[in-house]
Simulated scan of single mutants.
Amino acid sequence: MEESTCQALIPGLPDELALLCLAQISHGHHGALECVSRRWRDALRSDDYARIKARERLCGDWLFVLTDETTPAGWRAYDPSADRWRPLPRTSAETSHHGFGCAALDGRLLVLGGCTGPSSKGPTSRVLGFDPCTCRWTELAPMATPRANFACAVLGGRVFVAGGCASTDSEGLAAAEAYDPLRNNRWEGLPEMPVALEACWGLSQGRRFHVVSWPWKHVVFDPASGSWEVGPAGWELERPDPGLAAAALDGRVYGVLDEGLAVLEPWSGRWKLLGEPPLFKVPSHGRRIRPSGGALAALRGWVYMVGGKGIAYDADTCSYNIVKFDCALRCRPGDSGPIRWLDARPLFRASGSVVGCAALHQPTRIPAEHN
């Protein structure tokens, strides 16, 4: 029996208002919604639905992750409301992209700079943005300075970048700049850092932009005063890419140390241990294994650990093997009592070390009036 094309999406409501109601539901539940009827399926895939989600800024909460082992290659997006992962459309640079920065701002995932392969002529200034509402990548305003392996963070509705290298033989950059999507889609220059930093990572905390590098140097930019200063000690993190081993949540910085999950005490610059480290299960292995090369991220009160690699002993072959994890764990450090890591849904057809990670929070706003 064919469905009537004149039938309302939701009986008693105009279709515009019905689409607005459906747009409140996170994308991870779309599979179930599309099974309701062909009309709902077509509506959820329509341009009108995407336009309403974009207009109301209903991008949803997402955790975006890119690993070095994916089939097919590309970014994965996690919907915490539905506990589901989905692959994103491919971009032309993903197969060999490295040294890039990533951030989530204004309802989009931003992928900035980096190099596109071993044969590339050097870092790029290119910036790509992924919109969950339209499920499309678009080209955004390029950075003023091409760079790779640089610090990147979101603060006060802007993306801040600093440091990195501009070529394969570069000794490091002191240049910094910021991007505001609401101001003409342009980058503006910032005062240079007091020291050039070649390989560094960034984090926003305390309304300031922190830039940390190895060997350990720490400088801080205050947007209010427009000046840099030397940052406090204590931000050291033992990881090949420390920028993926720290996350800011509710104004506090969390990191994974050898001993476990810790929070940085701003008054002392020291790490305070909160609980056990995240440990992943390995089939046919008696113990859980701590991952190396995973990413720590914060989203809506939760701290997530995703992906990574480990070494496990195989009793059948009497040898040690490298295990590539697709696991995901999460905990709520703000809860009373000991830290408890809970299982989240594993990555979708992806595993191994994480090379990019960003958390997108749906903006909080007062809904527009509809007549």
Rank of each mutant, 00 (worst) to 15 (best):
S125M: 03
L296T: 05
G275P: 04
D61C: 11
R57V: 00
G293R: 02
N321Y: 06
S119R: 10
A196M: 10
A246E: 12
E171I: 03
R55A: 14
R86I: 05
D15S: 07
W235M: 14
G231H: 11
D343F: 15
S227Q: 12
D48C: 10
D258Y: 05
W201F: 09
G231V: 09
D343R: 15
G234I: 09
D258C: 02
V354A: 08
S319M: 13
E369N: 04
E238C: 08
Q7D: 13
Y254A: 08
R287K: 10
D131G: 01
C21P: 03
G356I: 11
A224W: 06
L274A: 04
P146I: 06
V211K: 05
L261H: 04
N321C: 12
G308F: 10
A196L: 06
Q362C: 15
L197V: 03
C35Q: 15
G337Y: 11
D250V: 01
V306Q: 01
E265S: 10
E229N: 07
A233N: 09
A174C: 05
D335S: 15
P232T: 03
S268W: 01
G107P: 08
E2V: 10
T67W: 11
P87D: 10
K281I: 00
S92Y: 13
C115M: 14
C165G: 01
L347R: 12
A358E: 12
Y304A: 09
L257T: 14
A8L: 11
L273T: 00
G99K: 04
A166R: 09
E188R: 02
Y49F: 15
L347S: 11
P240T: 07
G251P: 07
V154W: 06
L274S: 03
I366K: 15
F325I: 11
N184I: 00
P132Q: 08
S227A: 13
T134F: 02
R207M: 02
R183P: 00
K324F: 14
E369I: 06
D42A: 15
T91G: 06
S351Y: 10
A248Q: 14
E69H: 12
A344D: 13
G255F: 14
G114F: 04
R332I: 10
D241E: 13
G275A: 01
N149K: 03
G172K: 07
R239F: 01
D314P: 04
A141W: 01
K53Q: 14
G307D: 13
D61H: 12
D42P: 01
L128I: 04
G99C: 07
S4W: 07
S284P: 00
P277G: 09
R239W: 05
A8I: 00
A162H: 03
A298I: 09
S213Y: 01
S96N: 09
L261N: 02
P72F: 05
K309I: 14
L112C: 07
S26R: 06
S227T: 11
A43R: 11
A178F: 13
V159I: 14
S284I: 00
S170E: 04
S120W: 12
C133P: 09
E276L: 06
E171T: 05
V282S: 07
D42L: 15
P215D: 03
G243P: 06
